[in-house]
Design a protein around this nucleic acid. Sequence first.
DNA 1: CTGAAAGCGCTAACAG
DNA 2: CTGTTAGCGCTTTCAG
Lengths: 345, 345
Amino acid sequence: MTDTAQRPTLEAVAARAGVSRATVSRVVNGGDGVREPLVERVRKAVEELGYVPNQAARSLVTRRHDAIAVVVAEPETRVFADPFFALQLRGISKELTAHDNQLVLLLTEGRDDHARVGRYLAGGHVDGALVFSLHLDDPLPGLIQHAGVPTVFGGRPDWSGDRRGVVYVDSDNRGGARDAVRHLVGLGRSRIAHITGALDQTSAVDRLDGYRDVMVDADPRLIVEGDFTPAGGERAMRELLVRCPDLDAVFAANDLTAAGALRVLRESGRRVPEDVAVVGFDDMLPVAEQTEPSLTTVRQDIEEMGRLMARLLLRGLDRHAVEQGVGAAPSSVVLPTTLVRRASA
Amino acid sequence: MTDTAQRPTLEAVAARAGVSRATVSRVVNGGDGVREPLVERVRKAVEELGYVPNQAARSLVTRRHDAIAVVVAEPETRVFADPFFALQLRGISKELTAHDNQLVLLLTEGRDDHARVGRYLAGGHVDGALVFSLHLDDPLPGLIQHAGVPTVFGGRPDWSGDRRGVVYVDSDNRGGARDAVRHLVGLGRSRIAHITGALDQTSAVDRLDGYRDVMVDADPRLIVEGDFTPAGGERAMRELLVRCPDLDAVFAANDLTAAGALRVLRESGRRVPEDVAVVGFDDMLPVAEQTEPSLTTVRQDIEEMGRLMARLLLRGLDRHAVEQGVGAAPSSVVLPTTLVRRASA
DNA sequence: CTGAAAGCGCTAACAG
DNA sequence: CTGTTAGCGCTTTCAG
């Protein structure tokens, strides 16, 4: 743990280059409108002194921070169970980095933290926020709207409040689910069960809706609630085998759930896909490729979702500064999914 | 994307409360040495105006940011393959939050990014850094030393430079490996193979050393290099079965590797644990509990590692400010591991 | 115990 | 094109 040295200031650079602070500032910020020889001199002085601008001083006057908050609600739930979050974060990071923005990560644990996050956002520490509000009835979106920070949501937020200007990036969960179930139908299956995700998340609800779109008058007993975890998948699968021993296919709300279901099917002596075909959702590689048999699933480009969220936010920020409301506000994006065929269906 | 409203300043609060800016500042920062009735008045004004201090202005004078950078090198490698990183991050976040510090996440992709990170750290945007330098011969530690930012490393860094004051938090990889192998020996196994991790990471090297501590004159053919991934585990296991068909146990460098090995063992018709006992490392629940059979493994408390890193860093920062070198500098910590017995050994 | 005053380092008019 | 001049909002001596 070394000591932080005293950093040189604009003043010092100006003195060394024999110009005014203003000129140094201009050069440091792109050098427009400064004659070449001066630019050279200043650059040299900056180099020699190892000058780095003080971001606090700069923010104080520009009111920009070049920093974006990423808010993740309640990591305990799903976020840390699979690499989903990590991938999305990576996409976000790449995009932010490309635009010289910093990523401030705000993880919340339960209700108390909401207030803290709200305060932080309202405090004007960041230029915008990327929010993963996974749960229905989450107070976060409201808080954020109140804080007045430009925001893009990850996943369609379920929000009863004012929807104007709510921007989100989501996968086509419903369409993807339809594809999955249609694929099973195409395989000649008719008793197709569905293990849902945690139904307090819009993604789970949307996937269930997609299932219903195809299985218009499905036997209600074929639908069992899961929670996006392998354990939930096991539990649900056991229940299904009791309720509907004649089922010949399962559409699981995600790959982890499918993995749990596969295990139970194997234990019960059902062959996959011969007796029961199984389709998952996510195409989480470490999971989908490792199950036995490997998993047919619906792929979504998670990293791209992250990148897109960041892009949308930054674009909005720009317009904000430049055109003041001219041009359409950025609008939500729903990314397509693709079915990946492997061995399980 | 809503507009950012004009925030009230200290001045405004002072006016409303009928006191000076200085007094408001004192109250906001703890209220020491201000008479109770005034404190009340100020608090009320703050409340009514929804005042939140401007961090940039504050940092400008205090030179504190109450922000810590978390630097993760090359996410592609291991970090995003398993929930390891996410858990550690969570521990870090909890600790930082408890001390009112923000978490600035810096993900790097390749060499070019190192320079960017170095610049950022040197720029004095944060009070300290938590660095995951997973690879041998990583230039990052050097850059950081150069930047002069107080730093705690996650995992023992392999660093040829000046070791003075290098602080890290690590698991007892070597001891844990010894426990694992001893357990296998205790089970009466004698032909115990080891699938290593990626040997450009100290954790992999340390686990290999632990294996060798117990298997002092092990047949060198029993050691095969893996890379911490299931695919690597499969490849290594296949090779082992060819090289040493008589092996009766495998110690895998992590759970993912073990999962791959288990799959190959099953395919090859070996029963686990009857024919071949298998032990992993990490106790990554989603993996270790889901394998068939469930995995005996070495547990490390990953979240605690993260928490500890943050605690160490913050403590160092404090001392820095207060005592200026008095008292011992924080030193590295190696956390113990425990063997978790399940079905595979 | 409280207020007045002096910057922290930088940018952004505004002159020249 | 370049320099001068005000602050941005806050903390912190220093007087009173």
